[in-house]
Amino acid sequence: MNETLVECRDLRKVYGRKTALDGVDLSLGRGRIVGLLGPNGSGKTTLIKILCGLIQPTGGAAAVDGRAVGPYTKSIISYLPDRMYFADWMRASDLFDLFGDFYADFDRKRAEAMCQSLGVDPRDRMKTMSKGTKEKVQLVLVMARQAQLYLLDEPIAGVDPAARDFILHTILTNYNEAGTVLISTHLIGDIERVLDEAVFLKEGKVTLHDSVDGIREKTGKSVDALFRDVFRAQPMEGGAF
């Protein structure tokens, strides 16, 4: 088993004329909760999608557990995308069947218990569920796996503060502690307390990667305060007409 779980070397991704990732070098160990932090458009989702195999890098290399992205890495990654990926005809129980068939680390009993505690009936059709309930089902599917790497893309974006606490609580009480959780977000204040490490991504480049304690010690600021300093947009000055 490799001590380094995620390894990116000079990872680049270009969409037409826009550079999403510009030579990302990143190593992540095991048993960590890592915040992938950056404003919208900084390349967080692109990096996660490359690790999942949903997009192909323009250059460089990415490896998980020492292997190039492929069926093996997909079997140890639990991915929460920033959108719904269900077919309309499915029920939550169909998805449990599917995850049970394809992922050896999926714990169906845990998924059913989580559904019960979240007030979700697994027999309901996905198309009849509200957006919030669908998000809960997706979270259950991801966290009911004892994965080595959890890739959570903006899990707390677009929800109210109470729901954020609930989502974070679900993540923290269910993840495999021997694995690593990579959470992308720009809402630092809500997740700073649970992070071991933070990675700042700015315009497709890693500008900072350190432990949260290290950041506080070196800068004398919280990660949230440092993030605001680093990514503060300059307001446009009004000119004379």
Binding site: G70, R83, M84, Y85
Partner: peptide, 13 residues
């Protein structure tokens, strides 16, 4: 499409 986010993250070729 969106369902590809599930299908392409399954451990299959």
């Amino acid at each position: 499409g969106d369902e590809g986010y599930l299908m392409h993250t399954l451990p299959v070729k």
